[in-house]
């Protein structure tokens, strides 16, 4: 199942490189991945939405049972992450302390990383991952 395809990835480059979702102009909700109609109210009156680079974890898992071609990277962390008004499923990276960094509400920030590669053809997909972030300090 080595299935990297330049065109397939390129087609959704705004999503993969910037996590560009959609904002509904009728109900004002934001969603990702992008669709041609709002999943909440059905409106087709939508505009692009670029999420902020910081957000927080909604729910996470540490996946051991990965499939080809992710087997060399396992286990991988996956999380639903809230970024401003948008929610996205992302890989988490740079996790060093599960207990501290992985819980509901824990802060994360977006980073640009290698997603997967095709060993035999040298193709590499890059995209967005999230990593644990320092909480924003409140000024005394």
């Amino acid at each position: 199942m080595e299935s990297l395809s330049i065109s397939r990835f390129w087609r959704y480059r705004r999503a993969h490189y910037r996590l560009t979702g959609k904002k509904c102009l009728r109900c004002e909700r934001v969603f990702y991945p992008p669709k041609r109609s709002c999943p909440y109210c059905g409106s087709m009156d939508l505009e692009d939405y670029d999420p902020p680079e910081r957000g927080e974890i909604i729910a996470w898992t540490k996946l051991y049972e990965t499939g080809t071609p992710y087997t060399p990277y396992r286990p991988i962390y996956l999380a639903l992450v809230k970024l401003g008004d948008m929610t996205a499923l992302l890989q988490l990276t740079d996790v060093t302390d599960e207990k501290k960094q992985l819980r509901k509400g824990a802060p994360v920030e977006l980073v640009f990383r290698r997603i997967k590669e095709d060993g035999s053809h040298g193709l590499i997909y890059y995209g967005i991952k999230a990593r644990p972030a320092q909480p924003i300090e409140t000024q005394e």
Partner: peptide
């Protein structure tokens, strides 16, 4: 590993499975 890859087809191939997600995650 191959069957797990099949199970990833039960998620969105372009926006979920591409990050390694499958039905288990």
């Amino acid at each position: 590993e191959y069957y797990n890859a099949a199970l990833s087809q039960l998620t969105n191939a372009e926006f979920e499975a591409i990050y390694g997600a499958n039905i288990i995650s």
